[in-house]
Design a protein around this nucleic acid. Structure first.
Lengths: 192, 192, 192, 192
DNA sequence: GATGAATGAGTTTTCATTCAT
DNA sequence: TATGAATGAAAACTCATTCAT
């Protein structure tokens, strides 16, 4: 494994377990199997590590959600596709998904990291706005709807984490109905 | 203002702005208008401050949600009452509401703090379970439903925060329909 | 002794013995009889210490040279007065005098420190320019003459230092003739 | 250019700009156009580099001063020859000349380097002692006289450096009168 | 009780040096 | 022989906590 990847993986684990503030850099190094100084060859400093980590996973999340989406389908089906990808991503990378939420407001995140986060939100809001015009999604500020439905998924993953349980493979099945009904206009709601 | 309150208020502000890890205790003291040593007369240490802060606000939130709830009404109305109280609390105490979420997983929280958090979740889940038995809420693990709907509110408050906008007075109106439809069984859904 | 003075005195000793670059801050603290952290209460950092030290002694030197100078006397006598003050300062504070020279070009000196150094040079050059107009000092760029004659004193103090000998009380007597003849116009030279 | 010369040249530049203490070895290597490890093939370490540098230039200075000196001339003329050589050396190698002064007291200089420095001083002092016996130079400790007159030259080169100006080609003309008058016995002084 | 100057343990970071290639 | 990535020892600096006033 390349050293920068090893460092980011170690940092992800430790930042989630101990929090960013109380993870000493040498501990990240040890966990990554490299010398403490090596971290500074790959990243400009501790903040550089969090930001690289945040951007890496936020981009991975964005890619996972958007890649290969068939936009010709009805809204409910496209949404289901997105939701399944989101849940799949969270299940496959629970620590990374949690990390993205926990550190969303970290004062150590730089403009680049914040920018990536905003981009994803905006493109989702754009999709919702289309569906609102088509009548399949109810009225309301699309960015807030995205925030509410996405926040719901975050809440569920947190609940599993609080319980000490892994995210289940059928996470999407458990949550899709609530998620879609939160958004859908009356005639487009799910019945089962 | 009593000194312990002044200290907690200052800590709330600073922990939200700078994060717990990078807020020096002397800065909290300065902001609170007391000497650095004084903090140690009222709290056992920095961790004591976060925990007191967390418990204070989590209890305030629980009280705000539950107090004076009329349980004889139909589920949809009770839920609306709870939701309005929740939104009212978040609007009135946005920093505290954000703090509770941001620090939910802090490794510095002690058993007492975690316990309070769990209690509130559980009592909400109990209510939902009742409503499931009565047919007004759809099937599913009640704790996860609570987590999903509550996570939605957290998501919306974050979105406002990201925008740099205050939470609006009609926050509940904006979000209640989505929130209830996320939970409700088909025949109990809101139409507008 | 006030702590900041103790710190500066310890720093002076150590910077002269070990050089600025190889003096660890904790060693300065130990020598000053304070904790390592205390240095950062009084100075913004290691560079803050050198700069404070430089400014303190450069100002002391300027004061020692200029204070109570009787400008109504003939040039040769005024110069002798200045020279005796300079030599007296160097003899009384040999480490400080050496420090000022050794660190004159240190890249860690800030604008404030450089400014003080320049001020003293300029006021001496102004005096020389007067004497040139009066015919008692030979022609030439006054700033360079100041640099040459002052450099001579620095050279002599270095020579004593290299020998491991203290500066002698009659340093001025040993050097005044050469110093003045370096500057004087032919008819004003010293004969003994 | 041979690699060891490239390394020494790079080191000279950097040590003068950044000081010895804050010049990283890898930066010297980069500037010299070699790999960091290569420096350790030519020198035993960073201290080895400064010492080689010091000795190289101190020897070059000694050679420049002494080579081809016609000792049969009168003292004033021999001195003028030496002074012109000194000034020529400083003008041709200003960084090296400054380096020799700046690092004169560096605690990283070894016995070899200090020895070379002392040798040059002593041979100059010997010359002065001869001239004292012949009556052309005034009385006084010859080593101190050497130190004073040489210090004057150092002071002047510093002054140019402080101004950000290159040393002028007529440096010797500007300074020879002062230098010789500092040393000369009354009847041997220069008149213009 | 209240203070805040002082501390030193624990951070982040740098960089001379090594050694596998 | 030359390299430069990797290292870890040592540096600068921060800050939770104490305690004399």
């Amino acid at each position: 494994m390349p050293k920068d990847t090893a460092i980011l993986d170690a940092a992800l684990d430790l930042f989630e377990t101990l929090s960013y503030g109380s993870t000493p850099v040498p501990l990240v190094a040890e966990r990554a199997g490299v010398g403490a100084g090596t971290i500074y060859r790959y990243f400009p400093g501790k903040e550089g590590v969090v930001n690289a980590l945040y951007q890496r996973w936020k981009q991975a999340l964005a890619a996972a959600v958007v890649d290969g989406l068939d936009r010709s389908q009805p809204a409910a089906l496209i949404f289901e596709g997105i939701w399944r990808r989101l849940c799949g991503f969270a299940t496959a990378n629970p620590a990374a998904f949690a990390f993205l939420e926990t550190h969303h407001h970290g004062p150590y995140l730089d403009a680049g990291s914040r920018g990536i986060a905003t981009d994803l939100d905006r493109s989702m809001a754009g999709l919702l706005a289309e569906w609102q015009r088509a009548g399949s999604v109810r009225a309301g500020d699309p960015q807030l709807l995205v925030a509410q439905v996405y926040g719901g998924l975050v809440g569920v993953t947190r609940a599993y984490r609080d319980r000490g349980t892994e995210l289940p493979p059928d996470l999407a099945d458990q949550t899709i109905e609530g998620a879609w009904n939160l958004l859908a206009s009356p005639s487009n709601r799910r019945r089962s």
